[in-house]
Amino acid sequence: MKKNLRKDLILISELINSNEKVLDIGCGNGNLLSHLMKIKKVECRGIELSQTGVNECVKKGLSVIQGDANFDLKDYPDRSFTTAILSQTIQAMIYPDNVIENLIRIAERAIISFPNFAYWKIRRDFFFSGLMPKNIALPYEWYDTPNIHLCSIKDFTNFCEKKGIKINEFLYLNEEGEKLNDFMNNIRAYQAIFCVSKK
């Protein structure tokens, strides 16, 4: 199970304690949730937009609702979960600020991962080619990309400061999904994982 899991998801799962109640927003085919359920005895719920994703999840015995994080998070009461996970999805939200604020309302903390748009290769490619950057995490053309709100690590930390959101933990990853130290993270990191909560 673990070896099939994306590396950033393994790191996220390591941040989760056993017996937590977790909501995974944009849970895809449910790989992270079923991993958490088996390994950490976590009580899991999921929201997924695509029908194929929901189908896969329900088949795995997961409790997953077909829904849109842009609109459906407001229906959850305060503090219904210990952790809300938003992995590689924030950049596709219509109102990322609204979504993040909902996440830390419905859960005690939110774990948010995203591709760092200020990664040096993205800067380099954009500088030399003058074309919208593409890589494995961002494979789309400019006209068909769902990623309408890309941000850098610096953008995210600035946002948290401005909104009074507390950053409890952070992880910076290279292209291989290995942890990096903090040095020049906004240039060196390919992906970032933040664990945030209300102040």
């Binding site: 929901v54 189908n55 329900v58 409790s63 997953v64 077909q66 229906d75 219904s80």
Partner: peptide, 11 residues
Amino acid sequence: NTSNAKVSFVE
């Protein structure tokens, strides 16, 4: 969602 029920839903 406000109770503890385990809910799946597919349209």
